[in-house]
Design a protein around this nucleic acid. Structure first.
Length: 809
DNA sequence: CGTTAGACTTGGAACAATGTTC
DNA sequence: GAACATTGTTCCAAGTCTAACG
């Protein structure tokens, strides 16, 4: 293996913008069906589309960006109005191949049958049990006194675990027909439960005034507790982005003044810029510090107190089964943290009292107690609903709900239903693609717009894009795209730039089907700046049509389908059975990343990312440096090794003399400092213990040793290699091998980190990738599940674990 | 029909817990 | 063992989509 080669990807990855990756990926994942019903009529555009697909699928095979650009440019110059002159001899074949691959995945056993595969079901508990004795065995070596206690603890844990295991409702093992939600015609009229009881919701504690005064115009002012609370909400955010956002400030101040005016004891504060919340802010900083300083015991005690309060709220009983509840807390009052350019951001979100809360309970269930002096707003018995409690929030007048946790049967069932639906789309997608491709030329602009939108939703995994009001942030999805969000570059390149959900920017450049390009141009010209491109299309209309293509189909299913499809495809492509575990994990992360890119799941890069990269690069070099030294020792012991192991004769890349020099200097400096702090610390301890101090000569001796090291390093740099007396060739080879492992692992880590800096993997893992894909992958490549799923995700996807080894999406 | 309400999924950021390193 | 980085969890805003409404 050559180091220089290995280092290439990291730097290159940097250059590859997400955009191009995303576009190639999707076009690749979604081959166009070139068997249009009417070949003579469809020839031109269909041919083109096929050829484009071919090209873009080539793109995806890691052609550097620069080359891709060239390709694009050549195409530009080549392209003329007559579409016919593009040769396509082998291009069809390529498209076919992709299609074939897709349909060969199509080993679709009817879903109903698949569910019954339970051979694995028994294995889960077995492996659990097997792991427990192992743990018990490892405690045997511990000292006698604690032995018994530990053993007790272990068996207790084991028991608890087994009990938990028994308590799990394995709904996925039951006859499908018994389950709600399996109903083809959606969830309407479905009874979800017959018995439902829970302890209601947990209210946040009443406000406790701190008495710290804010200042106005430089002078401290006294506020009523109610006003102080609101001032404190803002004070806490003083240094955050929200606190600095003018809209946030304006909205906060207007609501703050309203609260102030409610009580004549409050001062009149006219101007925001005269307010000074820093005294409160400082107090909060202090509080945080103090909280951090608490001892372990104190923290534990606080935690226990919290848990004791929560305990009754944790579970609900549904038809006799215990189910975990997700969010049983009423949201505390605060300032509304709207995202992006939300016109209401900063407004006061008021405290919620029991009178505003509706509980959903079984008729027979006891009504839980609530805050003293209060009563519940309403008690209902809605057996079609899965919410346990609901209330209205005052900012946007929208409903908030308490639901069961993600590991519950209700959530699990609808999750499974969602993925099964996406999987079902596989069987329809070719037909649907053919049909919208044909519709791209429909005379009815309504139909044509719908087809164009479907193309985008399918190819780019765009969201549907419902209408939004003036009181919300201006964000869009497919149906609500406006003129200015799309830039067209002939012959068929489209630039997208708009704010999507959560005001996350979607920026992408794609080559599209010629007819799509023409349509977009036409629509744009018809509407003009500031107007919706698809002016005849609504999400409702689109979904109605989709539903007629396949029962239960809606726009979001395409996102799920394309995400899961991509993941399956990438995992198959990237993983090798004989890879090391870290390599497999890297492959997994890459597949996961492809999906995240496709769905445009972003995160803010950490402020220290660049520094962190420098640090890790330095770590890599340090390992290489150590390796180099070992190599040299090896050759000085036995020169013949050079011939036997030519791989060891090669120099480490990017280890130049300057770096080595600097590294040695740094090493010495660090060593010196270490010696000194250690010396002083020891003396401080001695002082505290009343022991005699170590003399300064001791420090000098130790520092002299550092100097010896320096001399040795200098000598080694000069080519003078010293080998320890007891060192052997075998030992050296062994050490080098271990360094190589470390080097490899660190490099992988670096690559992963860089590729990941602005991409958030969590959302796709949690919501878009069919967990059965991942479970099957883990099994066939012998990767422990915990390496890819956190504890909670394992629980959430329990239903996905009883599948055959060869399960494919 | 278009509009709104309601219920449920999806999403990034903040926060907490845990792991790593000096 | 404290400081830092990483990972996992919680929070709650912001979507989707269907049903009900007028």
């Amino acid at each position: 293996m050559s180091d220089s080669e290995d280092d290439i990807p990291l730097s290159q990855i940097n250059n590859g913008p997400i955009i191009s990756k995303a576009s190639t990926l999707i076009l690749n994942a979604a081959p166009i069906d070139d068997s249009t019903p009417d070949p003579s009529e469809a020839r031109t555009s269909v041919t083109i589309s096929a050829s484009q697909d071919k090209e873009s699928s080539e793109d995806s095979d890691d052609i550097p960006l620069t080359q891709r650009k060239q390709q694009l440019e050549t195409e530009k110059t080549l392209a003329s109005d007559s579409d016919d002159d593009i040769p396509l001899a082998d291009k069809r074949a390529a498209t076919k191949q992709i299609m074939k691959q897709e349909s060969s995945d199509d080993d679709d056993i009817p879903l109903a049958k698949k569910r019954k595969v339970q051979a694995k079901a028994k294995e889960v508990p077995v492996s659990k049990v097997a792991s427990s004795p192992k743990r018990a065995a490892s405690t045997v070596s511990t000292p006698a006194p604690s032995k018994k206690a530990k053993k007790d603890e272990v068996s207790k844990k084991k028991l608890k675990k087994e009990e938990e295991e028994r308590e799990i409702y394995r709904w996925w093992e039951e006859q499908t027909s018994q389950r709600a939600g399996d109903n083809e015609d959606g969830g309407d009229g479905v009874i979800r439960w017959t018995e439902l009881s829970h302890y209601g919701v947990l209210f946040p504690p009443e406000y406790v005034p701190h008495g710290i005064q804010m200042k106005y115009d430089g002078k401290p002012v006294t506020l009523t507790p109610e006003a102080e609370e609101v001032a404190s909400f803002f004070a806490a955010l003083l240094e955050s982005d929200h606190g600095k956002n003018p809209t946030f400030q304006k909205n906060f101040f207007s609501d703050f003044r309203e609260v102030l005016a409610k009580n004549p004891k409050n001062p009149r504060l006219e101007r925001f810029d005269k307010c000074d919340f820093t005294p409160i802010w400082h107090q909060f900083q202090l509080d945080k510090e103090r909280k951090k300083q608490l001892t372990k015991e104190e923290k534990l005690k606080l935690k226990e107190e919290r848990q004791k309060i929560e305990e009754p709220f944790l579970f609900a009983t549904v038809d006799g089964r215990k189910e975990q509840i997700g969010n049983f807390r009423i949201e505390p009052p605060g300032l509304f943290r709207g995202r992006g350019d939300h016109p209401k951001t900063g407004r006061l979100k008021r405290r919620v009292y029991p009178e505003q809360v509706t509980l959903n309970l079984g008729k027979e269930s006891p009504i839980p107690p609530t805050l003293p002096g209060h009563k519940w707003g309403k008690i209902v018995h809605d057996q079609q609903a899965t919410w346990l409690a609901t209330w209205k929030e005052n900012i946007n007048d929208t409903s908030k709900y308490v639901f069961l946790a993600p590991n519950s049967s209700w959530k699990g069932q609808s999750d499974m239903k969602k993925f099964d639906k996406a999987r079902e789309l596989k069987n329809y997608v070719d037909k649907i693609r053919a049909s919208y491709t044909a519709d791209l030329k429909d005379k009815l602009s309504e139909v044509r717009q719908r087809a164009t939108a479907m193309y985008l939703i399918d190819r780019l995994a765009l969201r549907a894009g419902n209408e939004k009001g003036d009181e919300e942030a201006d964000t869009v999805g497919c149906c609500s795209l406006r003129y200015e969000h799309v830039t067209l570059e002939p012959p068929n390149t489209v630039h997208f730039d708009f704010l999507g959900k959560d005001s996350i920017r979607y920026e992408n450049t794609v080559q599209v089907d010629h007819q799509v390009f023409k349509n977009l141009k036409l629509f744009q010209n018809q509407v003009g700046e500031g107007h919706a491109i698809f002016d005849r299309l609504t999400t409702t209309g689109l979904n109605k049509h989709l539903n007629s293509c396949m029962p239960g189909l809606s726009a979001k299913v395409f996102r799920t389908y394309n995400a899961s499809f991509t993941c399956q495809q990438q995992l198959d492509r990237l993983t090798n059975a004989d890879d090391t575990l870290p390599d497999k994990i890297l492959s997994f992360n890459r597949a996961n990343r492809e999906v995240a890119v496709l769905c445009n799941h972003q995160r803010a890069a950490s402020k220290s990312h660049a520094q962190q990269m420098v640090k890790i690069e330095d770590k890599i070099r340090t390992i290489k440096y150590q390796r180099m030294k070992l190599r040299k020792q090896l050759f000085s012991l036995d020169a013949s090794i050079k011939k036997k192991r030519p791989d060891l004769a090669e120099d480490e890349s990017d280890l130049d003399d300057d770096w080595i020099m600097q590294h040695d200097i740094d090493t010495i400096a660090k060593e010196r400092e270490k010696v000194q702090t250690k010396f002083h610390k020891q003396n401080e301890k001695r002082k505290a213990d009343g022991e005699p101090l170590q003399p300064d000569s001791e420090l000098k001796d130790r520092l002299a040793k550092v100097e010896d090291l320096k001399v040795q390093l200098d000598k080694e740099r000069g080519g003078d290699i010293s080998v320890a007396a007891n060192m052997t060739v075998h030992k050296l080879l062994d050490r080098i091998a271990r360094l190589d492992d470390r080097l490899n692992a660190t490099k992988i880590q670096a690559t992963d980190k860089e590729e990941n800096k602005e991409i958030s993997l969590g959302t796709s893992k949690m919501n878009y990738i069919d967990p059965r894909i991942i479970v099957a992958w883990c099994r066939s490549y012998d990767v422990p599940m915990e390496k890819v799923y956190s504890k909670t995700l394992v629980q959430k996807f329990r239903w996905a674990q009883d599948i055959p080894d060869d399960w494919k999406f």
